[in-house]
């Protein structure tokens, strides 16, 4: 460092001052997770010890086994994976199609449709909850002996009831439209001269060219659906076997006494979030792109 100019930030302030503040706030971001991981390995007595103990004397690995024996986290993992995965795929496909239509074609009503889709992002989701729930319950020919519309459970006993209400995303359409607008028209025209149909242009030119945007849409959708609680909770009331991981984590508190068996709840929480955290953290690039691309830049 000798001989170098003292590093300053954009505001002429020494970096060192900022480092301290950043480090303190960053520590608060990490500390709850460290506490969680350590507490999952504690005994019941260690969790309520005064003064508190930081690390368990002997790590109680069996806490994990005990937690899973009551709450089938593996099944919830699978449910979440299927639901979030199916939604992501559907959102990617429908976003590519609608984004293409709204960016590369001129037709009457296009701007109204686009603005309408954007406006849906302002609607509170509870506006849909009750009618969609009722609709799902009364889908004919589904959920057993329900062909007159009453008596059965419709799609509420099927994962479709968790997937369908999120199958299209206004944000996904917006993002892919913005991206596809940047693909030069000359490529499309050249393909048309070669006799390519419009759907061939979509799948062979637009989708490969828009891959970065579509992957971002898919990963961002997956993560937000993985973390979604409200709707899966509504549906899982009538179909507990379909509960996703977020619903399952909440069930830890009804399966175990939150005071007497806190160590088991914390073990369940650790199993429920730590592995996914590692995966999602490795996808940081896409997630960040998903947030930053969503409209901040033209």
């Amino acid at each position: 460092m000798a001989g170098e100019v003292r590093p300053v930030n954009r505001y002429g302030k020494p970096m060192a001052v900022g480092s301290v503040v950043l480090a303190v706030v960053a520590a608060t971001m990490v500390l709850p997770f460290i506490w969680l991981a350590l507490s999952a390995l504690k005994t019941r007595a260690e969790l309520v010890a005064v003064p508190p103990v930081w690390a368990p004397a002997v790590p109680q690995w069996r806490n994990f086994k005990a937690a899973v024996s009551e709450v089938p986290l593996g099944r919830y993992y699978l449910n979440s994976f299927i639901v979030a995965g199916a939604i992501s795929i559907s959102v990617m496909i429908t976003s590519a199609m609608a984004g293409f239509a709204l960016s590369k074609y001129a037709f009457r009503g296009r701007d109204i449709v686009f603005q309408g889709i954007l406006a849906t992002m302002m609607l509170p989701s509870f506006l849909f909850t009750i009618p969609v729930y009722y609709m799902m319950r009364h889908v004919p020919f589904a959920g057993g002996n329900n062909w007159l519309g009453y008596g059965g459970m419709g799609l509420l006993r099927s994962r479709l009831s968790m997937i369908l209400p999120f199958a299209v995303s206004a944000w996904g359409i917006f993002l892919s439209r913005q991206f596809i607008m940047g693909i030069p028209d000359s490529i499309l025209d050249a393909a048309r001269i070669d006799g390519a149909s419009e759907s061939r242009i979509l799948w062979s030119i637009i989708v490969p060219a828009a891959r970065p945007a579509l992957i971002t849409v898919g990963i961002y959708t997956f993560i937000s659906q993985w973390n979604n609680l409200f709707w899966p909770l509504v549906v899982a009331t009538s179909a507990p076997e379909l509960a996703t991981l977020t619903v399952g984590l909440k069930m830890l508190e009804t399966s175990f006494d939150p005071n007497r068996n806190a160590h088991l709840i914390l073990a369940g929480l650790t199993l429920g979030i730590m592995p996914v955290m590692a995966v999602f953290a490795s996808l940081q690039k896409y997630y960040v792109r998903g947030i930053t691309m969503s409209g901040v830049k033209e």
């Binding site: 971001m29 990490v30 709850p32 997770f33 506490w35 969680l36 993560i223 993985w226 973390n227 609680l229 991981l245 977020t246 984590l249 909440k250 830890l252 508190e253 709840i265 914390l266 929480l269 429920g272 979030i273 996914v276 955290m277 999602f280 953290a281 940081q284 997630y287 960040v288």
Partner: peptide, 14 residues
Amino acid sequence: LLPTITPAIALGMV
């Protein structure tokens, strides 16, 4: 980003 990519329900319970 760690809290952002973790389900809010789990954060709240912790």
